[in-house]
Design a protein around this nucleic acid. Structure first.
Lengths: 240, 240
DNA sequence: CAGTGTTGTCAACACTGTTGCGCTCCGGGG
DNA sequence: CCCCGGAGCGCAACAGTGTTGACAACACTG
């Protein structure tokens, strides 16, 4: 009744001659394969990259088959995010002082977040509660402890660093996911509209309109990371 | 395209354009009414509160009627977000030092974000490019200038404060939108799973497991806000 | 060999934002 | 005065999203 063959064959995995036959021998779909496919499509960078149906395409299987291995998309997302956390941890070399460990964590997180923007954006307000997250917690706690904080204070400052880094890289990832025109509108805000503002009502903006246009995301990123370190140092110094 | 009424005129709610009356006699749908309805349903707090269809319900009209007044949902969202920014600004009293102005901005932003979580969560990585946002920029720029930063440095530190506050408040709002079970799983991570971790592999976590469970969101919030102020102070001190 | 549980497929459901068609009704030009 | 052009709105529908239940084919176990 409703149009049959509603799929104009965007990318069907070939005629069904193979479909019934390909079920052979155990399961060709494993949690690991699904996670790897998720990472691949998340690395493509487009905003709508990480959908269940696209995941099915990437796997060459029916999209709903994923639900045989993960309760829902959120559980898969957490697992995938934990893998990306692993990538971050692997990029951090040993033997660094606590400040450089935090810097390395931030740099690695940013790099991975820009590599898998769909994942990083979705995780900006989440915790994975999985293996690699514990390693990150251990890393940050070690840093603040080495800096000189103890007990409850170490716990609070760990959260400050962790939450701030998550938010920071999440923002950058979300920005990357914006459509081209949305990003252009954003750029124009900084580079054009601030120069056209009423000097009477907005003297501060007028005074630095030129410099506002010249601010780069990297400069903001660096200042935000250093702010975390400075906050720890200031708290430690206050103890003496 | 660009609405001429969007120029940064400090327009009180009194619409001088009586010409809107000439459209129709009966009680009609006006942009203002739509924005107010959006604020009402956003204040209900549930995650799926702010949908076009619910907005139609709230207005007692067909959902698609909204599209006669706003190009799409995103444009409406930006307008609504600008209203909430207005609420934040109105909550800041005059005559404060620059540190307290930033604290007041943070406190006001948090309060409003928790009042309209759906809006704050959606705006965590956005800019409105509307009237009230310019006022916020002016406020932060005034603070960092009063602190002693000039030119490009003032611009970068404004972005640091603005982006950080947006992210901070957005995280809190997003947490509020989580389902009850998702939040419970999150709580249990901090309060239970950290005590069950392997002491050999995670000595730092084991050492402060108890304190990790006791960290409150408010404590983290305060530390994060103070970190912004400390970062500015440290940069200023470095200048001498 | 029969039975049982796993795993992929398919159709369908409940949502979301959004668009095109048609109706109604007001305001202004003749 | 009338007509008519257009704006505001309702309705149906479309292309998406995540997710579920029924069914079929396979592997493994008794």
């Amino acid at each position: 009744m409703t149009n049959p063959a509603s799929n104009p064959d965007v990318a069907p995995p070939g005629p069904r001659a193979r479909s019934t036959r390909s079920k052979r021998s155990g399961s060709q779909l494993t949690p690991e394969a699904i996670i790897q496919a998720s990472l691949r499509i998340a690395a493509r960078g487009s905003a709508d990259a990480f959908t269940v149906r696209r995941l099915g395409e990437e796997l060459g299987a029916d999209p709903t088959a994923v639900y045989r291995h993960f309760r829902d998309k959120d559980e898969l997302l957490l697992e995938v995010a934990d893998r990306t956390l692993g990538e971050v941890l692997d990029s951090i070399q040993a033997g660094l002082g606590w400040q450089d460990r935090i810097r390395a964590l931030a740099d690695g997180s940013l790099a991975v977040a820009l590599k898998y923007p769909a994942v990083a954006s979705a995780m900006a307000s989440r915790t994975t509660r999985r293996a690699n997250e514990f390693r990150v917690v251990e890393l940050i706690l070690g840093a603040v402890t080495e800096a000189g904080l103890r007990g409850a204070e170490a716990a609070v400052y760990y959260r400050m660093v962790g939450d701030s880094l998550l938010a920071l890289v999440g923002q950058r990832a979300a920005y990357l996911l914006f459509s081209a025109e949305a990003r252009a509108a954003d750029e124009s805000a900084w580079s054009r509209e601030y120069r056209l503002v009423d000097p009477q009502a907005f003297p501060q903006i007028t005074a630095v309109a030129e410099e506002l246009a010249g601010v780069t995301q990297d400069a903001v990123y660096r200042v935000r990371v250093e702010a975390l370190i400075t906050a720890i140092e200031a708290r430690v110094a206050q103890h003496r």
